[in-house]
Amino acid sequence: MAVTDTTAEPAAAAAGTSRRPRRRRTFGGRNLAFWYFVGPFLLGLIIFTYIPVGWSAYLSLFDARNTVTPASEDFVGVDNYVTMLTNADFRRSLITFSVFAAIIVPITFVSSLGLALAVNKVRIMRAFFRSVFFLPFACSYVVASLVWKMSIFAGVRYGMANTVLGWFGIENIPWLFGNDPPWFWLVIASLRLWIQCGFYMILFIAALQQIPEHLYEAAYVDGAKPGWQTFWHITLPHLRASSVAVLMLVLIAAYQAFDEFWNLLPNSGNVPYARTPLIYLFHTSLGTSQDLGRGSAGALILALLIAIVTLFQGKLLGFGKPEGR
């Protein structure tokens, strides 16, 4: 080191984590460089994430209808939180999410892993199959909802599903209009499965290709049979990290379900039997009532719930360590 501080106390030097003020001054240009690289991004993050969240937290303590700058006499303390947590509709939206997650998480996981294994096994046309399964990712939820609602699961005679059922003499089913039996779950789950399955398949294929081949060779030498045995003892353990990642990604995406519920269900998704948390929040805060105070309280409750889940995921994966990998 070119710069040695002769006056520094031995104790500070021994601490090892001393701040070395002289060195910092010597490389003053670095501080400036850091800020012109990171500064613009950080500024935007503060303006469009930190301040809004803080502002929202502030609004959640007020009776703020149709306004983002409530007067001080509208201060209501934690009333909005109490109202939201005791609100039957809000709690029911959390139940709707739980039902949705209980359906979509396992079927997405099994289907994407199954497709990844099958595509990995096939010898011909592998790129073709991968592309076909991944192609729905190009489709927005709006476009898919359009096809599902107006063509595949149209509740009329010319809908594709009803046409096929008609060949077997089954009466038309009104897939999306009604809750008894809840056919709409089939429509919603199949749509989301179609869009996201290929995406997670790609993740699994990438992980499968990281498994060293000699492990399989060693297993065969030891008398293991290809197929179930090697899958259970070699493939699956090596997919642990990706499996946890996929489960979490599917769960968090399901938590934010909005687009297909909005576009498929009657009344912009504002139906008591299938209102997701985000749909409920949208209608509370930006619907006719424009109740930004209660909406903010709801958003922060949801944010807190998902932060807990994400932190739990972090513990599971060791994500967010200083070096990140």
Binding site: V53, W55, S56, V68, Q256, L278, L286, L292, A299
Partner: peptide, 12 residues
């Protein structure tokens, strides 16, 4: 996730 912050961002 950004979807949850749609309301705070809308306020901004």
């Amino acid at each position: 996730p950004s979807a949850i912050t749609f309301l705070p961002s809308f306020v901004m």
